[in-house]
Amino acid sequence: MSPPEERPRDDRRFWIVFTAGVGVLAGLGAFTFRYAEGFSYFSRDPKACVNCHIMQPQYDSWQKSSHHAAATCVDCHLPHTFIPKYIAKADNGYRHSKAFTLQNFHEPIQITPRNSRILEANCRACHSAITADMAGGQHPQTTISCVHCHGDVGHGERTGMGRIDIMGRNE
């Protein structure tokens, strides 16, 4: 049984250790965040999307696609307004880092239904002059998506990467 006058000293010792622990955690956390290039995820630089190298083929193929000059990763894959954009960033960031750390994702990488809806909305937003009058405009989830046919605009042809375009040369 401890005498009552020893309690404050115990508390003080605990608080010193606690503060030191929180300091270590904060320092380590901040360093890890910086080391993992955490700030880049607040930018719109496509390079941030290949930080972890998993998306390298997607990045490479985007550079060979027709939309390369018109749109970057975030233009198609994230909502354009602030709050939904950061919700999507947080959602994807959490899923991607979990998958990359645990290495337990599906091969080949596939877009999630939620991200697919974001993508579809972005196609329609930029190309609204064409899509506004199209059937299904009000029900994007239930009708065919733009990329079902225009699958090559964002990431090029699925095959033939690195092929020599002999047909073009002949013309």
Binding site: F14, V17, F18, G21, V22, V24, L25, L28, G29, F31, T32, Y35, A36, C52, H53, F100, T101
Partner: peptide, 26 residues
């Protein structure tokens, strides 16, 4: 309570360190 807080801190620090090492490996 002190023990629980210290334990939680240790787990967090351990977790962040593990994550850091994982990132370094990748």
């Amino acid at each position: 309570m002190h023990l629980a807080v210290a334990g939680a801190l240790l787990v967090l620090i351990g977790g962040v360190t593990a994550l850091l090492v994982n990132i370094m490996e990748r």
